[in-house]
Design a protein around this nucleic acid. Sequence first.
DNA 1: CCCATCAGTGAGTGATGACTCACTACAACT
DNA 2: AGTTGTAGTGAGTCATCACTCACTGATGGG
Lengths: 216, 216
Amino acid sequence: MGVHKVETLFANSLEDSALSDKQKAVLRASLTLFSEQGFDRTSTADIAKRAQVSEGTVYKHFKTKAEIRSAILSSMGNLVVPAAASEFVAEIDPQALTSLEALLQFVVADRLQFASDNRAVIRVFVQEALMQPALVQNTAQQLTKQFEQGFAPRLHQLIQAKQLVDWPMLRLFRTVAGTVLSYALPVVMLPPANTAFDVEQATAEIVETLLKVLRP
Amino acid sequence: MGVHKVETLFANSLEDSALSDKQKAVLRASLTLFSEQGFDRTSTADIAKRAQVSEGTVYKHFKTKAEIRSAILSSMGNLVVPAAASEFVAEIDPQALTSLEALLQFVVADRLQFASDNRAVIRVFVQEALMQPALVQNTAQQLTKQFEQGFAPRLHQLIQAKQLVDWPMLRLFRTVAGTVLSYALPVVMLPPANTAFDVEQATAEIVETLLKVLRP
DNA sequence: CCCATCAGTGAGTGATGACTCACTACAACT
DNA sequence: AGTTGTAGTGAGTCATCACTCACTGATGGG
């Protein structure tokens, strides 16, 4: 199923960028702390401590604390999300094309796994999105583009094959996203300990539900 | 449809409590600022300024800044949510019982209106919920209780009348909540200017979608 | 009329936290 | 060996912010 941990993609994307080990440690520590306590409640001293680095080092590469957040979020918004999405689109099993059920099966399982793997980053993202509408809009646009290129054509095929109800793309997207969200949200919001989450079972339930709606 | 603005219920609930006009102004200003900039980025000086009050006055009634937030959130969690919810349950048109469609129509329109009316408070709540899992769990419990008392019986009736698919209550809840969320989320996350939101049309679409899933 | 009470004031305080800078260690090149 | 460049250090600075307190003015009861 490929790499789904944004942390991993993030780390990989840092290998290329000429950052020293300590700088990477700073970014990793920041991501952890931001997701645990929030950006504002994380001091640069905290970051330095967690990264086992002096506070000066934190500022050697990043001019401000906000720049650290930017590094994480832009990596997320402009690099990781599209990367994950296109990887994801590219990965779609060609045979998944043939049946609505197989397509849903794949998409739903994939996104649930994504949500469950990336609690931390999602939390940072949501937190920031609440204060920066532009961030929401950018990401929405990115996703829309990916969706229109990767998905819409396949959906049109399914509609023509009378396997999929003939609704506007936005409505199809909403239906799937909403149902997936209703399972993913508790996983992201609650501590992992409280949520014994069975991706397979959830997927089965969601797909069953969606098939009822999405068949013509 | 009764009062749905949490701000209004909140204000009403303050009328009773023996707070002076200035104290109420403090709470109102705090709510606005918290929802606009977040709790951490709002200074007590900001609050005082917005409430047209000296900083000392802010601390006359509330011992700490966190106490202001508590006043807002607990009012939300322990008072307003149940109040709104039970008001809401009590309001359900008896005739709505007879048909699944009428019930959905009412519930969906009501919750959409709620989301659209209460962007500000919802944002404060989500922001805080990200850092306090306990808050999520408390609210979830409150809602569950209300749901089980107010809704579950009616749903059981509909199931027995073969009007509603025989799924566990949690799954029924998820289905409805997920679909409503897929319409409500953009409204809450994006600035109102960008979202010309037509509750009626959205309701119609959601109900149509839900009927497809929820019929046996 | 005087005193007590109390909401309200705003200058002040101590702590915190983002950011700086003079310095060190070390590697690479001449 | 000497020079230069670069990553890293951590004590120090300055602004901000949550919170305090000595004071004021208005209200009302005796």
